[in-house]
Nucleic acid binder design. Structure first.
Length: 613
DNA sequence: ATAGGGTTAG
């Protein structure tokens, strides 16, 4: 590496190994650059905050402890800041004490801001209250960023009363503080209050808009997030990278491909740099819209990829049923020197599961602990159960559950139950259901799965028993909802929904569609279709599942050859799945359907899931 | 010289 002393700080960013950092340090030392205290402080700060080096934090600590006379307030504040974002935030207090112990130094507003954020990151209420008290004692509570930090911290700690009190005591809250309050209210679920505060703000900058948009996005209220983004453009607020990230998240959640593409064009037209965060959000949006090729294209165009980027891609491939590619990507991730985390393994195991790669999956699960020192979560166990079950190895699945070191959760039994549905094992299915109900009485998905097991084996008594049970336990099925996008406009359909302005035409189209499908050999299995519907509606032959309504509407609205893209909130039922297969053949139309778990790509009468889901 | 908002899975 060629080293100049022109801009030592920028070079820190380029180092990706501890050796390179040491080398750089040696060169700067030899050149006498680090004799200048401000530059030394900057160097330490850059090392501490350098995101690319795994050992940057201990190394910056080492640098600092070898030159105590250089430990300026700036350097120590930087250490507190760096730790506040790390996995060991509580170490911030070590540097806070160092400031207190140094005769020539005393903490300032920056110190407390970072310290308070460290407490939030550490979820440490006692430390947080101590930092709050210290900031008060030293007179820094008038600082907007300290206020903002406190509000953020109490929101993070789940203490709604506390952040309201902090905010309530202020006479004239600054823009920064108001924004923190909006964000805190949204985070604690009080989105309406957040919106009210937001609307009442005399000035709203980009950050305030982003906080509000992210608030909606976080609660899954993605349409409101996009609506607000529209308003933001009307007001002429300058749109930046962070805005785009929030908007892309909302698009991904909704499966709003047209709007997502618009963002992509915007990013390119305005020459926004494809940073890790923005690139990841963009690639993830394409994955969640079922556009694997575009997603991978963005992925490989990125200059830098971190664990989020890789995990998003592995998970995206798994969702789209490309499990083999997941493992390939995992190898490339390792070659790139990026360490996987818990979430990466969830994605990988799901990939092995959908691809039926049982042996690989078992190796992956084993390597988690042995090679990466990662303790599996309940989710990981659930994935493995799903993997065995899906492959038809129900015995392996059940003995895996029995061998779990902790109490199996409802998810593990749920995975087994789904496997029993796929492989038509009533006896084991009933057992799994029983176990599941001891843990989670209100999981409507379990009831539907069990009912489908009965239905597929024509056991009508079983079906009605489940219905009775649901009624007795007061379990209500979440209403099925499908969303499609036509010309950038989102259309939402519920089960038996007749509220769409063009419903009459939808109904006609639907009838024509179904009769064409029937003459092509489609046979319905009404028992399953009707399970989700209320008793009185059962008689009504026109009560269609939301995805069927969405398909009929697409056929009458979309030009020939345009892919139908549907996002569904629940798992797709057998009948709608069958219908989609036939539509793809009879109407020569590709359908991409995202359900609760995965994607179904229908083409020429075949689904990418090979009828296993 | 340092401060706010955002990314992954379920």
């Amino acid at each position: 590496m060629a080293i100049t002393t022109q801009n030592p700080i920028a070079i820190v960013e380029l180092c990706s190994t501890l050796r390179q950092l040491r080398q750089l340090h040696g060169h700067l030392l030899a050149a006498g650059v680090l004799l200048d205290p401000p530059l030394f402080a900057k160097f330490v700060a850059a090392v501490a905050l350098s995101p690319r080096t795994p050992h940057h934090l201990p190394y910056s600590h080492e640098l600092l402890s070898h030159s105590p006379h250089h430990a300026s307030l700036f350097a120590l504040n930087s250490m507190i800041r760096a730790h506040s974002k790390s996995s060991t935030p509580i170490k911030s207090f070590h540097f806070y004490r160092q400031i207190l112990l140094a005769d020539a130094l005393s903490p300032d507003n920056y110190t407390f801001n970072f310290l308070i954020r460290a407490c939030a990151q550490a979820s440490a209420p006692e430390a947080g209250r101590a930092a709050h008290a210290a900031a008060l004692r030293r007179g820094f509570l008038s600082d907007a960023h300290v206020q903002s930090g406190l509000i953020h911290m109490y929101a993070e700690l789940g203490s709604s009363d506390a952040f309201r009190r902090v905010y309530g005591e202020l006479q004239n809250p600054d823009l920064v503080t108001q924004t923190a309050m909006v964000s805190a209210c949204a985070e604690s679920g009080e989105i309406e209050l957040a919106r009210q505060l937001f609307d009442e703000m005399p000035h709203r900058d980009v950050v305030a808009w982003n906080a509000m948009i992210a608030g909606y996005s976080h609660l899954g209220r993605s349409r409101e997030a996009l609506d607000l983004f529209g308003l933001m453009q009307v007001e002429g607020v300058r749109i930046g990278e962070a805005t785009m990230v929030s908007v892309l998240t909302a698009c991904a959640h909704l499966g709003a491909l047209d709007q997502g593409k618009w963002v992509h064009v915007f990013v390119e037209k305005n020459k926004l740099r494809l940073t890790v965060t923005l690139g990841t959000a963009l690639s993830d949006m394409y994955f969640k819209c079922g556009c694997v090729a575009r997603a991978m294209d963005v992925f490989w165009r990125m200059k830098e990829r971190n664990v989020y980027t890789w995990t998003s891609a592995i998970s995206g491939l798994a969702m789209n049923g490309n499990g083999g590619k997941c493992l390939e990507l995992f190898e490339q991730m390792k070659d790139d020197g990026v360490l996987p985390n818990e979430v990466t393994f969830v994605a990988l195991l799901r990939g092995c599961s959908v691809a039926g790669l049982v042996e690989d999956g078992r190796d992956v699960f084993e390597s988690m602990k042995s090679r990466y020192g990662i303790e599996p979560w309940l989710e990981h166990y659930g994935c493995v159960v799903d993997m065995y079950g899906r492959a038809g190895r129900l015995k392996d699945a059940i003995s895996f559950i029995d061998a779990m070191p902790m109490e199996p959760h409802a998810g593990a039994w749920g995975a087994l139950l789904n496997a029993c549905r796929l492989h038509k094992n009533i006896e084991l299915g009933e057992y799994a259901m029983e176990k599941m109900m001891q843990l989670e009485l209100r999981n409507h998905g379990a009831y539907v799965s069990l009912s489908n097991i009965y239905a597929e084996s024509r056991n009508w008594h079983g079906v009605s028993d489940v219905r009775e049970l649901m009624k007795a336990k007061g379990v209500r099925k979440e209403p099925g909802c499908s969303v499609i996008e036509v010309d950038g406009q989102l259309h939402e359909f519920f089960v038996g929904d007749k509220s769409h302005p063009k419903y009459i035409k939808i109904e006609t189209t639907m009838k024509e569609m179904m009769s064409k499908l029937r003459s092509a050999g489609y046979v319905s299995r009404t028992n399953q279709v009707l399970f989700d519907i209320e008793e009185e509606e059962k008689e009504d032959a026109l009560c269609w599942h939301s995805e069927k309504l969405a398909i009929a509407f697409s056929l009458m609205s979309l030009r020939d050859g345009v892919t139908i893209r549907i996002v569904k909130n629940l798992r797709v039922c057998w009948d709608c799945h069958e219908t989609s297969k036939f539509v793809s053949k009879v109407f020569d139309r590709e359908i991409v359907m995202r359900d609760r778990n995965r994607f179904h790509h229908f083409k020429d009468g075949v689904c990418s899931c090979m009828d296993y889901w």
